[in-house]
């Protein structure tokens, strides 16, 4: 009776994979030198040594991989958190993770650590900041071994405020150059030169996707609420904690390599939910793919629209994401509810 659903899922999945491929090809071909789609394959296979080959393999491809990883991870974290909290408005940054990461980076810049230790310190500081926030939100909202999910949300929002106040203090008291660096970092960008960081980002996000599929029954059962999930044999206490840790790691990774890229973790899961429904089995992978494709597409616009200058990617994700989401919500949203 419900096998037809699996066929439908297969079709959706094919579509989302095509979307990703389209975004990747678009991103490969556009830039300071435009490379026609028809030539890309040829250049990558035979054109070693040419300028085009260098541009494709050393500039655009790493950036695309980072975009897919970050977009996928942010959307995945968004889906997971919305599932845990059963609240469609939660996104990875709601829990103060971005605020903490930004504060960490701002601190590292103001303290001049990037001059003494090197540029890798910024992602590291971001990750430490994110981790510190997650740990404090977590510690403050666990009582007697149970997470109080609604409290946690409020605590996250408050910690986010505290972190952004502290960061504004740093920004107000530091030099102009530091201020510029902080603002630039916070706005988010996929311009990451360190190949190892890109590799790490890709590995973390793919692992995150695989591990979250181990919790697929938990996420689905949680749609009915914690108590009812428990009645279906789910050990909610442990699995909610683990899911929270997965989502935090993913978000921390994204913020530390790419800065704060807003909207993706909120909009992509919502958008996908409207299209494929609320079953997490299809929701996780679809959000992961579409989030990656979306970021790659937005990043291509960000680096080509006002070339040779680059727009912050957050500007593009916010505008495109926000407008198309409102459009979809008004036109399609009538038929289905958000969560």
């Amino acid at each position: 009776m419900s096998y037809s659903r699996y066929i439908k899922w297969g079709l959706w999945l094919t579509l989302f994979i095509l979307v990703v491929i389209a975004a990747v090809l678009y991103s490969l071909s556009r830039g300071e030198i435009d490379i026609p789609l028809s030539k890309i394959a040829g250049i990558l296979i035979e054109g070693k040594g040419s300028i085009e080959y260098t541009v494709l393999s050393e500039i655009r491809l790493p950036r695309i991989i980072l975009g897919l990883s970050v977009g996928g991870a942010l959307s995945l974290a968004g889906v997971i958190l919305q599932g845990i909290y059963r609240n469609p408005l939660v996104e990875p940054y709601t829990l103060g993770i971005s605020g903490g990461a930004a504060l960490g980076v701002a601190f590292a810049i103001v303290a001049g650590l990037s001059y003494t230790i090197g540029s890798v310190i910024l992602p590291a500081a971001g990750f430490i900041g994110a981790l510190a926030t997650v740990v404090s939100v977590y510690m403050l909202s666990v009582r007697k071994g149970k997470i109080h999910t609604q409290n946690m949300l409020l605590i996250g929002v408050m910690i986010s405020f505290i972190a952004s106040s502290a960061m504004m203090f740093l920004m107000a008291t530091t030099t102009n150059e530091n201020l510029h660096n902080i603002v630039f970092w916070v706005m988010g960008s996929l311009d990451e030169a360190n190949e190892n960081l890109i590799r790490i980002a890709a590995i973390i996000s793919v692992c995150g996707l695989l591990v979250s599929y181990l919790f697929i029954h938990t996420l689905n059962a949680l749609r009915l609420g914690e108590e009812k999930a428990r009645h279906l044999g789910i050990n909610t206490d442990i699995s909610i904690k683990l899911l929270f840790i997965i989502a935090s790691m993913l978000t921390g990774m994204c913020v530390s390599v790419a800065g704060v890229i807003g909207f993706v973790g909120l909009i992509i899961p919502q958008f996908i939910r409207i299209i494929v429904g609320s079953d997490f089995r299809i929701l996780l992978i679809s959000s992961f793919l579409t989030g990656g494709g979306f970021i790659v597409f937005c990043d291509t616009l960000a680096r080509t629209l006002i070339a040779p200058n680059e727009l912050p990617i957050g500007v593009i994700t916010g505008v495109i994401g926000g407008i198309s989401f409102i459009f979809i919500l008004i036109n399609l949203g009538k038929r289905s509810k958000l969560i």
Binding site: M1, S2, Y6, R86, Y213, L214, I216, H217, N220, A221, R223, L224, G225, K228, L232, G233, I234, G277, S278, D279, R281, S336, K337, L338, I339
Partner: peptide, 25 residues
């Protein structure tokens, strides 16, 4: 509660206690 879930999917959730961690469908 009445989340966005069809009757059939909801009823099938009753089989969750019988699924192993890796049973996807």
């Amino acid at each position: 509660e009445s989340p966005d879930i069809t009757v059939e999917d909801y009823v099938l959730m009753g089989r969750l206690p019988y699924h192993t961690g890796f049973q996807f469908f």
